[in-house]
Amino acid sequence: MSGEPSCPFGGPAPEHSAEQAHRDFSRSLSYGDYLHLDELRSAHQPITDAHDEHLFIAIHHVSEVWLSLIVRELQAAMRLLDAGITDAPLKMLTRVVRAQEQLTAAWDVLKTMTPADYLQFRGAFGQASGFQSQNYRMVEFLLGNRNSTLLRPHEHRADLHRPLAAALHAPSVYDLTLRLLAARGLPVPAEVLQRDYAQPYQTNEAVLASWLSVYCDTETYWDLYELAEKLVDVEDNFRRWRFNHLTTVERTIGFKRGSGGTSGVGYLRGALDVVLFPELWDVRTQL
């Protein structure tokens, strides 16, 4: 050894050093460029000086991104179900369930905003409300919660109204699942398969009997059984999201009317009673 101190500069960077990272993006796509982060940040525009408005906007932006992903995954799963494929849609529906978990967790962050915090900016955004979310409404329609009145908040935007109207009149994910039962020879009545899709689904005893056959003979109908349980996962998480929405609203504004014109807590409590896939819940009593 020479006894001379080693110089930390001038030599090659260690293999695991940050110095190995690419640093020149003059001719290539950077992280910010790829994700359009400038546009994303520019969309965050509070209209008051209230500190918690930043939280309020961030939570709703994040929720819309998750809802958009859920719509995409549901539509992909439904295309496969419509083609008679039962295994591949499970991956999309599992992704829906995981995204729903993220949506539900977002309410816990929003709950850190107190009623006094919210009152500092609530009046500034007028009648704007999550009730008007096109992504959320599309999720509801794809899952089968049908109500033509819910199209009205989107009538001023043809680009939003048109796909919702199409979804309202098309089979839901449950309608497509019932077609698969019929294709396997299970007795699903014609009036169920050919119903008016714009109307809410009604419980049918013959459909319940078909699901009972599936659940009593899972070896024969394993793919249908697995699909049914995945749909139950989706609805279970949908209920949790709605319940957390209800409790967040109640602890923030009590029983005041919602900014979008609904009764607020009363409307949300009524929504908890909606059952999307009724026979998949009723079959448990019959087993």
Rank of each mutant, 00 (worst) to 15 (best):
E4A: 11
A13G: 01
A18T: 10
E19I: 00
H22S: 10
H22N: 08
D24W: 01
S26W: 01
L29F: 10
S30F: 04
S30Q: 04
D33K: 12
D33R: 11
D33P: 01
D33A: 12
L37R: 06
S42Y: 12
A43T: 08
P46V: 02
D52V: 01
E53W: 09
L55K: 02
A58P: 00
H60P: 05
H60N: 08
V62P: 00
S63Q: 11
E64P: 02
E64K: 01
L67I: 05
V71L: 01
R72Q: 04
E73F: 08
Q75I: 03
A76S: 14
A76R: 14
R79E: 15
R98V: 09
E101K: 08
T104A: 11
D108I: 03
D108P: 03
V109E: 07
V109R: 06
L110Q: 13
M113G: 03
Q120K: 13
F121V: 03
R122K: 13
A124H: 07
A128C: 00
S129V: 00
N135T: 09
R137V: 01
R137H: 01
F141R: 03
L143S: 05
G144T: 02
N145E: 14
N145I: 09
T149Y: 13
T149A: 12
L150T: 13
L150H: 09
L151W: 10
P153F: 09
R157E: 14
R157K: 13
A158S: 15
D159L: 04
H161K: 14
P163M: 11
P163K: 08
A165R: 10
A165D: 12
A166V: 11
A167G: 05
L168P: 02
L168I: 06
S172E: 08
Y174S: 13
D175E: 02
L176T: 02
L180M: 14
L180R: 15
L181M: 11
R184Q: 15
R184D: 15
G185P: 14
P187A: 12
P187T: 07
P189F: 01
P189A: 00
A190N: 05
L193Y: 05
Q194V: 02
D196N: 15
D196R: 14
A198T: 11
P200K: 15
Q202T: 13
N204E: 13
A206I: 02
A206G: 06
S210P: 08
L212G: 08
L212E: 14
L212C: 10
S213W: 06
Y215S: 08
Y215M: 10
D217L: 03
D217G: 03
E219I: 05
E219F: 02
T220I: 01
Y221Q: 05
E229H: 03
K230Q: 12
K230S: 07
F238D: 01
N244G: 01
N244L: 14
T247S: 14
T247A: 07
E250A: 12
R251F: 06
T252R: 13
G254V: 09
G254Q: 04
K256F: 05
G258A: 08
S259Q: 02
S259R: 04
G260Q: 03
G261M: 08
T262R: 07
S263K: 12
G264Y: 13
G264A: 10
G264R: 11
V265S: 12
L268A: 09
L268E: 10
D273R: 15
V274F: 15
V274R: 15
V275Y: 02
L276P: 03
P278A: 09
E279P: 10
E279A: 13
D282K: 14
D282R: 14
R284F: 15
Q286N: 10
L287Q: 15
